[in-house]
């Protein structure tokens, strides 16, 4: 037999110097407008529900310690954050990972690379990690001063050695660089190679770098 509970509505107004109010609500439909005005507030909210309509949080305070939001959902409509504060740090993912010390740069140098020759650097992504490459660049200079007015054609590419797959290409005269709008992803335990090729008709000093972060 299904037990039905009556609907329940009550205005709660608490005035006190020290108030503790644990609330456990189990219902099919809940609407809780809450207006808190206090000197000090700690608010832990744990919501487990099939569907969450809207969560609106408006905080006005001289100082906010930490706001931690952990969202796990199949779909998320919009996440709108409007912050007005004296000092707030909001970072893009790559910037944040650099701040956290997860940046990873891979470079290769060959001071005398003969015409048609190549050099590479290689990196194997650790188990449980993923390498997100956000930039690629190279430069090419003639070794001999006699060749420095000529074309300094170079080519650089990223290659997934484990899966035999090209990831990115870049060519140019003297050098070039690119930032990837969407990072190039290298999965755990895959070996990525950064290779420079000297396509000039003379010996060249070549350098290349790819950058990103490992998390």
């Amino acid at each position: 037999m299904t037990v039905d509970y009556p609907d329940w509505t009550r205005l709660i107004q608490l005035i006190g110097s020290n108030i503790m109010l644990p609330i456990d609500i189990q219902a099919s439909y809940v609407m809780i407008p809450v207006d808190i005005q206090a000197q000090y507030v700690t608010l832990d909210i744990d919501i487990v529900a099939q569907t969450v309509g809207n969560i609106g949080i408006d905080i006005k305070a001289a100082s906010v310690g930490n706001i931690g939001i952990d969202i796990k959902a199949n779909t998320l409509g919009n996440l709108t954050i409007d912050i007005e504060a004296q000092s707030v740090g909001v970072y893009y993912g790559a910037e944040w990972e650099t701040k956290e010390g997860n940046d990873k740069f891979l470079s290769v140098v060959s001071e005398t690379l003969e015409s048609g020759d190549s050099a590479y650097a290689t990196y194997t992504v650790p188990a449980g990690k993923t390498y997100y490459i956000t930039s690629l660049s190279f430069m090419s200079l003639a070794v001999s001063s006699e060749d420095r007015d000529l074309h300094q054609t170079g080519y650089v590419y990223l290659w997934n050695q484990t899966d035999s797959t090209f990831l990115a290409h870049l060519g140019g005269d003297g050098g070039n660089g690119i930032s990837f709008p969407s990072p190039v992803k290298v999965a755990a335990e895959k070996e990525v190679r950064l290779t420079v090729l000297n396509y000039s008709a003379h010996d060249s000093l070549m350098r290349a770098t790819c950058g990103g972060f490992v998390i």
């Binding site: 010390g101 940046d103 990873k104 740069f105 891979l106 470079s107 290769v108 140098v109 060959s110 001071e111 050099a119 590479y120 650097a121 290689t122 990196y123």
Partner: peptide
Amino acid sequence: NSMNWKWVTSSEVVITLLDNK
């Protein structure tokens, strides 16, 4: 955080590492 491979011969490399942390 940063690794540089400088080739000194066709089979030997000087690998320089920088640990920012």
